[in-house]
Amino acid sequence: MPATRDLIPYAEYSSPDLSKKLTVDATLTHSTNGKTTGPSDHVLGAGAVDNDKPSEAKSSRLGALRGMLTTLQDDVNEFLTQRMKDADAAHTRAEEEADLERRVLDDGVDEDDED
């Protein structure tokens, strides 16, 4: 690991069902151009110019820290986005199961239908 990459940030996540530590591999080079920040590829592909694009990291300890913070930010964003998707999918599944159970128990008969 280069001497300038000794400032290594990390994050610790916890929720009722999961604990996880998110770390950055300091042996790699980290860009300041994040995957989950800035305009989407679709917007850029349509010809947009990113005027807020971050400057390249300097070859200093703080420059390396900024690159590693960008990677950590990407990792946190992707991790939490996946957690949100999983929670939404579980919610939808639970609703479908409850609906199926209700239909089976009711045997397809509508209670309001009394003729």
Partner: peptide, 12 residues
């Protein structure tokens, strides 16, 4: 508030 995220960021 049962979801937590704690960052630890070292400086010089």
């Amino acid at each position: 508030f049962n979801h937590t995220l704690a960052f630890s960021v070292p400086f010089e």
